[in-house]
């Protein structure tokens, strides 16, 4: 759904008969921000649910892995920023490489989350042999849901970046007109913003 909506802002053309390109851009930008605002409430409700159910209780997670994927996501934000700034300066070549870098780092992040899931020491079932407490199950529930929803956004973001990359390679977009890339990259930063809250809530809050 995110793909549809975020791209939707990029390419409106009808209804613009009385609208200058500058105004169209501004309308698109505010619309995209409202979309982020709206999505952040979904993330925020899950975030709040985590504390409602567990307080600050936290099961053991792989701190090193957590820190690494956080840095990877931050690094991908840097490459995304590079891509957008390069477009603004009209440097298509650099933008292409930076987009490619962002895509790769995004994939690394997603794989990292997948790996984290496979080594997690908490599950969704109570079992005698692992001496699992109910809290273990609830932590599993919120952890898999929160990281899962975030990862779904990462994956859809990667998909949109790939589309933007293909279009850029085919000669679309210019210094003056590249809302398709800007919106995708804003979406990518938004995914990073979510992680800024989710990382401490899931990895750090119990020290």
């Amino acid at each position: 759904m995110a793909v549809i909506a975020a791209h939707g802002h990029g390419v409106e053309s009808h209804g613009a008969s009385h609208m200058s390109p500058e105004k169209r851009l501004r309308v698109n930008r505010v619309g995209l921000w409202l979309f982020f605002f709206s999505e952040s409430i979904i993330f925020g409700l899950l975030f709040t649910s985590r504390f409602f159910l567990l307080g600050t209780h936290q099961e053991h997670v792989d701190q090193f892995l957590g820190l690494v994927i956080t840095i990877v996501l931050l690094a991908s934000s840097v490459t995304a920023y590079t891509a957008e700034t390069a477009m603004e300066k009209g440097n298509r070549k650099l933008a292409q490489w930076a987009l490619l870098g962002t895509i790769l780092l995004g994939v690394v992040f997603a794989v990292g989350v997948g790996f984290e899931w496979s080594v997690a020491e908490f599950g969704l079932k109570l079992s005698e042999e692992h001496h699992q407490e109910p809290q273990n199950v609830v932590f599993g529930t919120v952890f898999f849901t929160m990281t899962g929803l975030h990862a779904a956004h990462v994956v859809s973001g990667v998909g949109m970046l790939v589309l933007a990359f293909i279009m850029l390679s085919r000669g679309h977009f210019s210094k003056e007109s590249h809302w398709g890339i800007s919106s995708t990259i804003m979406y990518w930063h938004f995914v990073d913003v979510v992680w800024v809250f989710y990382y401490p809530a899931l990895y750090l809050v119990a020290g």
Binding site: R26, R29, M186, H189, V193, V196
Partner: peptide
Amino acid sequence: VYFIAYYFMHIYRC
């Protein structure tokens, strides 16, 4: 979030 929203996402452009 302030840094990301302001410098990366250019919220002021709204």
